[in-house]
Design a protein around this nucleic acid. Sequence first.
RNA 1: GGCCCCAUCGUCUAGCGGUUUAGGACGCCGGCCUCUCACGCCGGUAACACGGGUUCGAAUCCCGUUGGGGUCACCA
Length: 469
Amino acid sequence: MSQQIITRFPPSPTGYLHLGGARTAIFNWLYARHTGGRFVLRIEDTDVARSTKESVDAIFEALEWLGIDWDEGPYFQSERLDIYKAHIDRLIENGHAYYCTCSPDAVDRMREAAKARGDKPRYDGTCREKNLPWTKDAVVRFKSPLAGNTVVEDVIRGDIAFSNTELDDFIIARSDGSPMYNLAVVVDDITMNINTIIRGDDHISNTPKQILLYQALGATVPDFGHVPMVLGPDKSRLSKRHGAMSVTAYREMGFHPDAMVNFLVRLGWSHGDQEFFTRDELIEKFNLEHIGRSAGVFNPEKLLALNAEHIRNASPASLALHLMPFLQAKGISAAEDAYLHGVIETLQPRSKTFVEMADGAGFYFVEKPVYDEKAAAKFLKPDLLVPMKQLTDAVSAMEAFTEKDLEDIFKQVMETSGLGFGKIAQPVRVALTGKTVSPGIFEMMLALGREKVVSRLRDAVAHMAQNSG
RNA sequence: GGCCCCAUCGUCUAGCGGUUUAGGACGCCGGCCUCUCACGCCGGUAACACGGGUUCGAAUCCCGUUGGGGUCACCA
């Protein structure tokens, strides 16, 4: 029986969830879902000074928006201090760790000295063999092996060997007894049965230390997979100066979470030439074998194009949920009904974001469209009064309000007036929307419904008559 | 600086020794479609960082160079 894959996402709540973090969360979540495994959420808040409740909430909010759910947790490291303490004590007892009373200043000095000699700045092992007892200012250090190699068997990069001489006796517990990152992660991953760790490659140099900790604790080393980082357009690490970094900022800009997920996954993972993936397709096809090894540049234009494609392909009903907040932000109170769905359908092919869609939806929800001055001057001129009136009367007299019948009416008007379709459509467009740009005439009329169409046409006719002097 | 990672069009990438005149996508540039704007469709632009090997044959394997990135905390 093969064991179930158990992955995790362990953000530290020191800010919002950024794009890189979101991507590793998605990778882990996807891998768990793909394999029928479990996905654990853990908040790494051992750094009390930098961790905030706001950040925790922001992370939950971002994950929820992305549609990433977890099977276990959230665990908080701050609530697991006793567990770390027990493991630290065990390491001291079995000789894998020791108390060190060297002051921070003293350690700084040895680092400076080592640097001056051209060596790697590191702790020199002063207290390593002293077998010191606990004292108030003592930290606990891990006793790293002095020779040999530790190799990371990375599932996406292959074996990476580190000489143990590169590692110094790193601190695993602060003088106040709280655990340091490497210790806490390893203890958590052991006790939570995590067997697959997918994370950013900025963690790669931590990995040998963690492997040593696993071994010292007598635990099975999990599979590690280090994914490349997400870079800004200038190919440097993504940071604030590159603009929006926070995942939720993209929600505000009108992006569809599925597009965001699709984009982030495709940045570093591939399935042949396929670019567009639904959520289910991703779960079905995602694997570790096709994760790339080189860093990727975040490309907002591609995200935008992908977003437009997701909007085009989604059902109006599912889009309605996402669109609602943007409508409200514009003061539009729309009900979640068939009318809204019809409106959305006409807007789908011409909206790259929900912001654009909400902008385009405005005229559907007003009592009377506001005429754009230039548009009205150009198209609602008296010379079209007759055909427009004919059209209006015909529409109001229609038996069934169908596209076919509307087309017939237009044909009749074209015949009697001798005008081309465009000559008539443009004034109708202005009458219905107030603008010269809109969805197609017939689909729009159908979405608006006969009542609104007739009343707007009548208003336009009145406007034209009034201006005929 | 030590250690580690990486290297195909501007960007995301396919390619896992021969089927490649290196494919797709975004962007950009033409054109078609057309009731506006879009969508869609057709075409074009553009890359294997460099140098050595290995091999009958290399974008694909090895080494080096160069260039980028990461990491060296009582942060995570």
